[in-house]
Every structure is written in C-alpha cells, then in structure tokens.
C-alpha cells in the first residue's frame, strides 16, 4: 500500500472521560478486587484493538513509515520515534493529561491503580507501574496481533516503562539481554531513552 500522509494526531485525551473512568475503575476494584479490575482493563483494551481495522504491509520499512506517521493502529494514540528498526519509543503517555486532571480535581491517584499493576506484574508480565499501563500494553499486544508484515504477524514486547512522576519499571534482568538484542540498543542507550520518554518497546516478526 502506498504511504499515506500523516493526519493531525489523536493523542490528546478527554480529561472528563479519563477522570470519570479512573473513578469508575476504583469502584470496580472496591467490588471485585485487583484481579477483577485487571480482567476488566485487559478486556477493555482488547476490545478496543479488535474494533480497529486489521493491517497488512509488504515490507518492514512500509510498516515503520505507517508507525511514525501515526497511520498504524498501533500508534493512533501515541507519538513515537524509532531509534532502530525494531525499537519503538513513546515520548509521552497518552494517559498523562487525564492523570494530571485527576490529581488536580480529585487528589492523589488512588493506591488501587498501583495495586492492580502489582497483580498484573505477578500474573501476566512484570512491566506495569499502574492500571493505565495494563490498558496500554494489552492494547499494543492485541493491536500487533492484527498486523502482518510480509505475511508474518507482528509481535510486541514491552522493554521499559516510565510514569509521569519519573517512576521506572524495566523488565527483569534475565529478560533484558534478549529484548535489548532484538531492539538493537544497549543497556546504556536504554537508560538514555528512559530519561525523558514514557515507554520503550519492541516490534518484530518471527
């Protein structure tokens, strides 16, 4: 498919809905606990990805172009740059504005958002800092599954996450060498990227 021009980005969130949703999620956690909330968040994100159209690209370069310009479903909600052909870096979390609005209008972010991430880290994979990362990372995994490049399905792996307050979560040490090799960056380069970006992730085909 010929490259499409980039359109105005859809990154800005809706603070009204974001704050309302955070509070609603807290309500779900009160009733169903961290595991119930985790299931809800994962199905929310999977549902979103499934509602978006599938994609196919002939070459990796064509796919990269779509990623960078925001024309791929994977980067509809985030602005990314790619230091290598497989490493993707998100500059700013798409949830940042909603979180800022929450702390401004409601107060400190409820502890349940971290507790559900702890549950996700132990039950699914250890890459989330709060509930929003569960949505984001599940969405990326489900969206990647809807994309093929040269007939092969795209795979996604999270390498590291940084939240707006600076807290970092990097995959366990035993996973890191393999992921960094696939991403084509060194540990030092990863740390450099984590200084002023929100996420470092990986896309590849097998």
């Amino acid at each position: 498919m010929a490259a499409e021009p980039a359109r105005d980005r859809l990154i800005e969130s809706n603070p009204f809905v974001d704050v309302a949703t955070h509070l609603f999620l807290e309500d779900i956690a009160d009733k169903q606990g961290a595991s119930g909330l985790n299931n809800y968040l994962m199905s929310l994100a999977t549902n979103l990805a499934k509602s978006m159209p599938e994609e196919e690209y002939d070459t990796w370069d064509e796919f990269l172009e779509a990623l960078k310009s925001g024309n791929s479903i994977l980067t509809t909600f985030e602005e990314v740059f790619m230091p290598t052909k497989n490493c993707v870096v998100t500059r700013r979390s798409p949830f940042e504005r909603g979180w800022q609005e929450y702390v401004k209008r409601v107060g400190s972010f409820s502890r349940i958002h971290e507790e559900v991430a702890e549950y996700y880290n132990s039950a699914v994979k250890p890459t989330a800092i709060n509930s929003l990362h569960i949505i984001h990372q599940t969405f990326r995994a489900a969206a990647s599954d809807r994309i093929t490049v040269g007939g092969k399905r795209v795979k996604y792996a999270q390498v590291a996450t940084v939240w707006t307050d600076g807290e970092k979560k990097i995959v366990p040490d035993e996973w890191l060498p393999v992921l960094l090799q696939k991403a084509g960056i060194s540990r030092t380069e990863l740390n450099m990227l984590l200084r002023n970006n929100a996420d470092v992730w990986l896309l590849y085909t097998e």
């Binding site: 809905v17 309500d27 549902n47 949830f95 984001h136």
Partner: peptide, 29 residues
C-alpha cells in the same frame, strides 16, 4: 485513548446488558 476504549465497549455492553444497562452504566460514571 481511554475515551475511545470506552466507546468501543458501548456496543459490547449494549448487546450484553441492553441499552438500558448502558444508560445505567453511564449514569453511574
């Protein structure tokens, strides 16, 4: 992103809980 995710959920929710269920959900939100 969260708003778009919620909108995507409306169809599913309305099919499972009915449109009146969705109304109650939004009112609770």
């Amino acid at each position: 992103m969260l708003d778009v995710a919620l909108v995507s959920l409306i169809q599913d929710m309305s099919e499972k809980a009915g449109v009146d269920g969705t109304i109650q959900y939004w009112q609770r939100v």
